[in-house]
Design a protein around this nucleic acid. Structure first.
Lengths: 197, 197
DNA sequence: AATTGACTTGTACGACTGCCCAAAAACCAT
DNA sequence: ATGGTTTTTGGGCAGTCGTACAAGTCAATT
């Protein structure tokens, strides 16, 4: 088998993925064109359809790859925090580094939106989100959260995405000021019952 | 002055706005074309640029108009609820009617995203959101919420948007099961301090 | 009846789109 | 060197895009 040839292809694919992820954030999912990606990756226009069956395929691969990395790192570091209340505090601090109009935030939201119209992408993204939610729920439970940990995790993860959205509109929104309500939510005071799915 | 002509123009504009709002949800902000809007509205292709300086102008007008209606109705009915805890319950029930892939939900998210790249739209949308947040905060305060009502309102509104996002991925997500954590957040147990902006 | 002016029509333009493909190039085994 | 694979190239195809515009319609005014 050829080896260096395969290597060449692999690095080209990586460059395409990186360029695609950056462009989705910059010009939007629907604004990315094959020629844009190729130029940014420093290759000829035709190369996109050699490595990927369609532009959409490339965008899906690029976005899910980037999102998987981001999500796993974020939830990984969150679940390292000593307890739910400290974790929420840490989370807000971490989130403050995203303005809502930065590449990472935009890429995530673009994905959610594109997923509504691309079943393949939806499945993959759903898998990522459910996994994160489960990790957060387990961490809440382990941290002594008495209520429905699944529900609290779902609201927490949703709130994070929602806050990203709102941050894009109003960069002055002070996230650390929101610790109070979030703390109240994860506190160990849950005499409310609730069934998880 | 001509009168019937002006009337004709007014209704045409309304048809264009309606068609544009529907199409943004269906094919995405960037997927809407002048010809699509014109066809859906039942007018000739050129009419768009007679009534609006650009396609973007039309999309901004259409989306903000639709969003204003939705937001005002939702927050209006929310703040009619007797108290925060009952309100949260009502809110989740109301939200369950949105699947996350329905026109209304998609339109809102498309707007958030487009706002990141269109300053004009961002300003208008920010105004709408801040107004809603203020109304919710005032209602929380009036309902006996002891903590930082501004913060709680911000998280609540963000959570709503975030849940919409997640609902699109996983329509099976049972929103009514999330009442526990949200109730804990709006309850009158706020000995945590917090400064509003 | 003539004029006005808002509104509508259909077409035209240049630019850009995703995708395709024959040919060139780079690499490997023999 | 020779042949075989894999990757790359650059141009071509058929189509859509936003926008501009001359020509047309129609009710109200003069």
């Amino acid at each position: 088998m050829t080896e260096a040839s395969a290597d060449r292809g692999r690095t080209t694919r990586q460059r395409l993925l990186g360029a695609a992820a950056a462009l989705i954030a910059e010009v939007g999912w629907g604004g990315v064109s094959t020629r844009m990606v190729a130029e940014r990756a420093g290759v000829a226009p035709g190369v996109v359809h050699y490595h990927y069956a369609s532009l959409t395929d490339l965008l899906i691969a690029a976005s899910t790859g980037a999102a998987r990395g981001m999500l796993e790192e974020l939830t990984g570091r969150l679940t390292e925090q000593p307890g739910p209340e400290a974790g929420v505090e840490w989370l807000l601090g971490e989130l403050s580094r995203y303005t809502g109009t930065d590449p990472s935030s935009l890429l995530i939201v673009e994905m959610y939106l594109a997923a509504a119209r691309l079943p393949d992408l939806r499945e993959q993204l759903q898998e990522l989100v459910t996994a994160s939610r489960a990790r957060v729920a387990a961490w809440l439970r382990g941290g002594g959260h008495a209520g429905d940990a699944e529900a609290a995790a779902a609201v927490l993860v949703a709130a994070v995405d929602g806050l990203m959205l709102h941050r894009g509109l109003d960069p002055a929104l002070d996230l650390t000021a929101l610790a109070g309500p979030l703390r109240a939510m994860v506190r160990t005071s849950g005499h409310e019952k609730g069934r998880s799915t």
